[in-house]
Design a protein around this nucleic acid. Sequence first.
DNA 1: GTCTATACGATGATAGAC
DNA 2: GTCTATCATCGTATAGAC
Lengths: 199, 199
Amino acid sequence: MSLILTSKARPMSERKTKIMDAAAALFKEKGYAASSMRDIAERVGLEPSSLYNHIHSKSEILKDICMVNAALFVDGITCIREEGGSSTEQLRKLIQLHVDIATARGSSITVFNDEWRHLDSESLVEFLKMRKFYEKSLRAILEEGIRCGEIRDCNVQVMLLSMISSLRWVHEYYRPEKMGDPQTLGCAIADLWLSGLST
Amino acid sequence: MSLILTSKARPMSERKTKIMDAAAALFKEKGYAASSMRDIAERVGLEPSSLYNHIHSKSEILKDICMVNAALFVDGITCIREEGGSSTEQLRKLIQLHVDIATARGSSITVFNDEWRHLDSESLVEFLKMRKFYEKSLRAILEEGIRCGEIRDCNVQVMLLSMISSLRWVHEYYRPEKMGDPQTLGCAIADLWLSGLST
DNA sequence: GTCTATACGATGATAGAC
DNA sequence: GTCTATCATCGTATAGAC
């Protein structure tokens, strides 16, 4: 899954990159609504008004962060579906995708997870479409697994939501020294999900 | 677990209750920072300044919501630990506790989950202490289970964080008509966690 | 591209009449 | 307890000099 490294976004000016990074970090720390353009400007060493030479508005920053990350997940799961393999294999790859993205883009993924509701209505529609696509794909993996007897026949929606939610701590609490590299962690979480806690 | 019904909070005036409920709903919809005192006042049918006859500040509302809910979890897990039983039984009860609280206090629990970082530093310390206590208790359950061979010997921190996180969708996406009553849902999630997805 | 200056609405909170 | 009036501050964003 080399998607994280081979970003398809066209190159960004160094200044704009710094602004986006500072904004993502701030949104993570205080949330979108509580982060001001003055805060962002201060972090990046500019006067507030100068930010507008690089971005159009605060809401545009949020939109960019959310969409870039949503695309990573959509592309990732599309890739996994195309590669095929058993449901179990696909689930393992999917969990690894989440862990890879969460460990590689800590602040950006927080914003994607928690701040998307502040998107303006137009962007929100687009964002929710992508999320819907992602959920539909995951549901398909689970249903295939149930059909061929690989996955237990439980409430699919409950499985799906539990699985996705259970990965939402990684970006915040991942500690390499305690949990190993992302590959190791992904494997451990996949084992947990597939085999359960009981001996 | 009758904790939810037998609230220990001293009685609140009807007006104050309405203010707190409206605030919790708003904080859930837009987040704490993006919700204004004017918004709250409008919902409850008062002028903004009148709110201050019932509460001292906006931050106090947040503090009350967070602390009341934190106490529910702390009391709940304390109860479960005191009742004893096998680790598996305790884990089942704990999952049920989460589901019960999430389904019974939707908006309040969202605030507790996502908005606590806006607490002022003093309240934040108190809040984090309670959370720490909760995590320590859950860790003890898991470690006991591993020691006596009831729970698989995995990274405890990874298990703990995954378990807690996996329950964070309930308050938002619980649909009784699709998932049954809270008891049924709690049972289903507990089965998922204990036995895993694989057949 | 960066700055200073500024527009102008929204914010949390208070004072004081009723 | 509720209101009107008001304050001081901070919010996003723009204009225009350099």
